[in-house]
Design a protein around this nucleic acid. Sequence first.
DNA 1: CCTCATTATCTGCCTAGGCAGTTACCGCCT
DNA 2: AGGCGGTAACTGCCTAGGCAGATAATGAGG
Lengths: 179, 179
Amino acid sequence: MPEQHYRPASYRARDSMGYLLRRVHTIMHDRIESAFAGHGFTLMQWIVLIYVRDGLARTATDIARAFRHDSGALTRVIDQLERRGLLTRERSRADRRVVNLALTPKGHRTIEELLPVVVGQMNLALEPFTREEFEQMRSLMERLVRHLQALPSPVVQKVAASRKPRPTPVARTTRRTRS
Amino acid sequence: MPEQHYRPASYRARDSMGYLLRRVHTIMHDRIESAFAGHGFTLMQWIVLIYVRDGLARTATDIARAFRHDSGALTRVIDQLERRGLLTRERSRADRRVVNLALTPKGHRTIEELLPVVVGQMNLALEPFTREEFEQMRSLMERLVRHLQALPSPVVQKVAASRKPRPTPVARTTRRTRS
DNA sequence: CCTCATTATCTGCCTAGGCAGTTACCGCCT
DNA sequence: AGGCGGTAACTGCCTAGGCAGATAATGAGG
């Protein structure tokens, strides 16, 4: 029997790990995003560039999978980067469904420009932690990611009839010209 | 001189704490969201309900601040919940700008229904951790949140001329009819 | 060779959220 | 009393992202 860290009867929002993780993520995301804005980039654009540079991705699908991002959205981000001349798309000859991405010199220069911004924000956020605590945090988060990835996708428990999740059942008062 | 955990020259995307936190957040968010979908609710709706129940918020602004969420978006979420009869809005008599939120009996029943879902997902995610590791993680995240909240907002460093962040400078070519 | 399931990419469509107002109200100050 | 900065709630507008579908290509199997 694994540990039961939370129980319905005693659950309080302020103690929830979900709450903490969300807060951390939101604040860091906002800070990076606005630091990038001064340079004319978004976080997602940076992700694409650095993933290609670090060899974590050669195609849009690689990024979509590794970063859990929508592939449709990816297409549009890559559109922007291509238009701005930061990377190139090249149809693979081995598999003509695939489009390989490659950084241009301008793309590399952009990474050099943004790297200090990212690193600066990261160091600022982690400032109060010792090297040991930092490693602890990293280790815990890595284990958590690995565990979460290994979990089976959450089978919808109730209302199994409807296949579609329907995010907002009440939909809209706007009345979509029904009559 | 505080610890410098990252350096531009050796920065690799896969080792970044930002990456880890994002992955954790994304996966947990998606899981909770789709678990809720089967019950006809979204995470944000749940947040509002549980915040009101736990006394963390009496008004939309309380939630917006505590959860770092857009107040405009909040208005619309509360609209939905009110329409579905889960909570009520009541104009404060002490300060007529304020609208106080209160759960209805149906709202309380909904929380009872969703609590096991939240707790279940949380415990599932944290399953591989001992009580001690869990407390360690919570402590680290709490310190990180407190530190991040205390940080001054990131003054835009370059291109200081333009006041507006401009998320996407290239804007749009519209014409995506590639030949 | 032909069929069929699968995959990569791209495209519409819709919704949630960020942002910039607008309105109403509060409390302070003169 | 009246002006005025600040605040709560709400409202449009716009964009990013989720989702479903379209297209094209691959590869396995008959």
